[in-house]
Structures are given as structure tokens and as C-alpha cells.
Design a protein around this nucleic acid. Structure first.
Lengths: 233, 233
DNA sequence: TCATGTGAACAGATTCACAGCT
DNA sequence: AGCTGTGAATCTGTTCACATGA
């Protein structure tokens, strides 16, 4: 810990826990909203409230980045926002290719909070000859056949998979072969890829099933309380 | 533990850890695929491989539900699938209302793995008078003004928010007031709601930022190794 | 005196080795 | 003999109380 050779260039720098990482992106968005509202200073209590967490957790999360607050005062909103963005790597340019131009792909391409924060959609692919060539926002839909060439020309360094489950794996393979190392997949399949490739998955079926589990438990609990109340008198 | 009064109707029944819960939905999908392929029996090793986890973790996850395998043999695919589905509460009827009929809402409404597994989309709402009345698959888009009435008539018990950030909170409030207790939100805002309401969030900005963080770290690590290599000789 | 930052206690998740059935 | 099921150990993440410093 006190070994000078292990010191980091800025902040504490050593590995932010996954759960903290997810919350940091929320703080970042809340801080952004506050900036547009002209709020200049915020306490951990206020920021935590707005982000839907408790304040010790928020302070712990921020402590992984460094000490960017002022004791007895709070945090400078634009400064903290900048520090979080830097820690997350948002000062670099992220050029995103979206594979699949169905409803989902178009929804993603048109996502507003996208262009901001260092992300730029540079390509949108589809396999259907009818949709290739159509314009979506600023983009023209490219044919998947030309994927490798377009990825190289646009220098995309991230990809989003918005294709049907049955072609997700092959598209994933092609993206990796083309040098993409970060993939966000919306396809409801387990993608097999080398461990050095970062893959994140968003799956509505999973989310709904988790909700169903909790809702069912709530129902069972209610019935149990009910039955118990009846037994008691 | 051995208190007979605390016994559960089936399986072990006591609170599945959040991380296990998320993986169980994956096992369920993999088992579904296996069933369509006519595979009748599977070992923890094989299932774990297909689900992208290691086998002790898979067995631990399954142990929260009960003992549904056969030692020395493995698991019966349809039986295990049924047990997981039951544990997740998928034997109940889940009627889902989707709020927002933009590209995202339509993508969700058309999601294939939706109708299966106990989920049924029973309503699709939009605020735009031009889109109200349009048909999407089997559904006709309803006006948000009539949300409360339609929710009651369709007896929806879950909702998906696919609306712009600036109206997400008010739509959330209306859903809760109408008796909905489980909400999946795609809007990039922190929703404030009473703790008894189950809210899950899917946020593409968060996902991309987490990918960016890891990609940045990989870059920094590569540069560091590079620099070190140069120092070494 | 105030709110941040953090070490230490705690809780939760993962891993592992092996006991227990078939 | 083989594969499941699980307790115990380990590791990781969260909570909390309070020391720290403006």
C-alpha cells in the first residue's frame, strides 16, 4: 500500500468494485442534471438522496476515486462530475457500432444521452437488403456483409448487439475477429468469447423473471400473514 | 431450521441470493434450448459450460431450490426446467403493460421469448395521438389518458417503462397509484418510489460506461506493461 | 462545528473439498 | 465409480462509527 512503486498517476486508481462502478454512473447522471439546473455544490446526503442510495455508501464509492470533496462543505458539482467521468474513462473517444437495425437497434441509435458523454454511434448494420441504405438520424444503415470494412473505416472500438438470438453468436465472433474488445449484447443467449473480451448483457426476460420472483414472494408472504392472522383469532 | 413451522411448501424456499437468482434465469433459458434440441439429461458440468459459469457455482445455485438432480447421473432437463420456473414464480400469470410505444416499446412488445414463460403483453400505451390506435402485433396502442382504466380492465400486474426520461417519474407514479407493484424501467432516471414497490432498471448508458471503464483499464494496463518492458531492457 | 473520508466489523457471495446417493 | 449436494473457509462488498480536516 505504502510502496511508492505501486502508486497510481491520479486518484487511488486501484480497481473499483463492480457494484460501485454501476452506482458511479448514476451519480454522474444526477450530477449532470444538477449542472443543468445550475446547482454548484452538493452534500453527500443530497446527492445520495437524488441517486437513491444512502450517504455512507455514496461516500465509500467516491473514496475509490480519491478525495474530491471538502470536509464540512460538500462537493463541487462540475468538479466531481469531471473526476467521475475521468475515472470511468469517458474522456477517451468511444465509437460505437450497432449491429441490427430493427426496432431495438433504431431505438438505441436514437438514444439521446448517447452522443453526450464521449459515446458516438459511428455505424449501424443490418442484414436485410430492404433496410440497408435507409437513414436513421445522421446514419445510413450499412450491410452486415461489409461489417469488417466499415468497422475499420469508422475505427469503432465498441459494439452493441441488437440482433435475433440465432445470429448473435456469429455476429459476436465476427466483431471479435475484427478487433472489437467491448460488446454490449441485447440478445437473449449466452455468448461464448475469450476472457479478454468484455461482454455485458442486457436481458429483459431475466429482468422480468427477477421481478416475478419478488412479486410471487410478496404474494406468498401476504397469504402467510393472512393465514397466520386467521389462526391467531 | 429444523423447526417444522418454518418449513416451506416445496423446495427449500428461503430467499434466493440476488446473484444466484440472475443466473437461474440463464439456466432456465439454456434448459429451454436443450429441450427443443431433445436433450433429456444434463450434468452440472455440461449445463454450467452452456451457461458460462463453473459447475460448483451452478450446483450451489440449484441447491437453494432443493435437490432436483440424481447423484451419479445428472439432471432431468424438463423436470429441472419446471422446478426452476416454479421457484421463480413463472407458473403464475404475469400480465405486462408497456408504457411508451416508440421504437423501444415496440421492440419490447415484439420480443419473442416474451409470450412464453408466463409473460403476456396485455397493453401498450402512448401519449402521441398519431400513434394511438395503431396495431403492433396483436395489440392496439392505447392512449395514456386511459391508462388507469385499461390497466384495470386488462388486470395488468407488471409494467415496463419505455418513455423519455422527463415523463418517467410521473408515469411511474400513475402506475403505482393504479396498483402496479413491479416495474421494469428503461428510462435513464432514478425513480423515486415506496420501498414495497419492486423497481428494476435497465440503462444502456450505464452499461456502456462500465464497458468504457474496463476498456480504459485494459489500455492503461497495456501501456504500463509496455513501459515496464522498456525499463527492463 | 460541520460533512467528508476511512478503518474495522459485518454480511454476502464464491470457492472448494468431500460426504452422500444412485 | 460417478456426480450431486453442502458445510466450512475464503474472498469480496457493504455498513457504520468516528477520526479528520476545512
Amino acid at each position: 500500500m505504502s510502496d511508492p512503486a505501486s502508486r497510481q498517476p491520479s486518484g487511488h486508481g486501484r480497481h473499483i468494485p463492480a457494484a460501485s462502478l454501476a452506482r458511479l454512473t448514476v451519480y454522474l447522471r444526477v450530477l449532470g442534471t444538477m449542472m443543468t439546473e445550475g446547482i454548484e455544490r452538493v452534500s453527500s446526503e443530497e446527492l445520495a438522496e437524488a441517486a437513491g442510495v444512502n450517504s455512507p455508501k455514496l461516500r465509500k464509492d467516491l473514496s475509490y476515486l480519491g478525495s474530491y470533496g471538502t470536509r464540512g462543505v460538500g462537493y463541487d458539482v462540475p468538479y466531481l462530475s469531471g473526476q467521475i467521468a475521468a475515472a470511468l474513462g469517458l474522456t477517451l473517444d468511444w465509437r460505437v457500432a450497432i449491429v441490427g437495425a430493427g426496432h431495438l437497434g433504431r431505438a438505441l441509435a436514437g438514444y439521446p444521452g448517447f452522443g453526450s458523454r464521449g459515446f458516438e454511434v459511428v455505424a449501424l448494420f443490418d442484414a436485410d437488403q430492404m433496410t440497408v441504405g435507409q437513414e436513421v438520424g445522421w446514419l445510413r444503415i450499412s450491410p452486415v456483409d461489409a461489417m469488417e470494412a466499415v468497422l475499420e473505416k469508422t475505427r469503432a472500438n465498441m459494439a452493441v448487439l441488437a440482433v435475433p438470438a440465432d445470429v448473435a453468436q456469429q455476429m459476436c465472433d465476427r466483431l471479435i475477429a475484427a478487433g472489437i474488445t467491448s460488446i454490449l449484447s441485447f440478445a437473449p443467449v449466452v455468448l461464448q468469447a475469450p476472457p479478454e473480451i468484455q461482454i455485458r448483457k442486457v436481458d429483459m426476460a431475466t429482468e422480468l423473471q427477477i421481478l416475478a420472483y419478488h412479486a410471487q414472494r410478496a404474494q406468498v408472504a401476504a397469504l402467510a400473514t393472512d393465514a397466520q392472522a386467521r389462526l391467531m383469532r
